[in-house]
Nucleic acid binder design. Structure first.
Lengths: 142, 142
DNA sequence: GTTACTGCAAAAACTTTGCATTATT
DNA sequence: AATAATGCAAAGTTTTTGCAGTAAC
């Protein structure tokens, strides 16, 4: 179970653009959209095409080099992977800071629930959003 | 905690179009996209504009009348609510059938995890995808 | 009669694709 | 030199918006 086929990762040459994209994701602890990363690269003086950024982010995510996160509105965001195993994110909606959460308990729960309902080959999406401690203190609430 | 402000739900008049949209979501056990629902309505002879379907689905979801589900690729799907409380979905990727899962355990786990990391006002996204029993039997696997 | 909804079509936002050019191995 | 990546711009998708007309209360 769970044998991952090698994703179709073209884009394996080590080009300046690929390095730039990778470096950009490593330079920020936040998950960011393709467009944001592209803008950042341009601002930093890197000349990279938007399509190229799209291609590399997809490729890198497919290879497991980057983590992806889907916002509630459906945007796909990218960030460098911090850990190997399967994990989830606790994202501060105010500052964007992310805490990785080991999902063992949840995985077990999911497995149970799936079996109980006769499902197999189960995958899932799971993200948590909230207000981190620092932001709670900083931003007074009405 | 968790006091929901009333969403800005305009579209409160009971019009033929609103009824049609609502009826359509009730006529199918599956989560469907706005475009799919619009197409279905048109096929059924209902004259409804696409923008109107978008507006009503958003409105109804905001009011809690419809459930939403986000696919892995970011599409937002709608279906009539089956239960009041907070719950999650186990979606068959083959036939689209959905099983609602009470999320009490998971809610508790999330609460714990959030507190442990100093987060407050936590919300989450969580969906499970798999192959249901019927489809597993039906579709032979390589 | 007033207010809100509808539909169209235009616009907006985002992502993918074709192809000639350029860089990498 | 051969092969793959790049960049641009065009095309493809999906969702939102403006506004005149229409329906609901």
């Amino acid at each position: 179970m769970g044998s991952k086929q090698s994703p179709d990762s073209r884009q394996s040459h080590s080009t300046r653009q690929r390095q730039a994209v990778l470096h950009s994701t490593r330079s920020s602890p936040l998950f960011r959209s393709t467009q944001e990363i592209h803008t950042e690269l341009r601002s930093a003086g890197e000349s990279v095409g938007l399509a190229t950024v799209y291609r590399h982010l997809q490729s890198l995510a497919g290879e497991g080099v980057l983590d992806t996160l889907q916002t509630k509105k459906g945007e796909l965001l990218y960030r460098c992977c911090r850990s190997d195993g399967h994990h989830h994110h606790l994202v501060c909606e105010h500052c964007g800071r992310t805490t990785e959460i080991d999902g063992e308990e949840i995985e077990a729960w999911i497995e149970q629930a799936a079996i109980r309902h006769g499902y197999t080959n189960v995958s899932h999406t799971f993200e948590m959003f909230g207000l981190c401690d620092a932001c709670r203190r900083g931003s007074a609430k009405g």
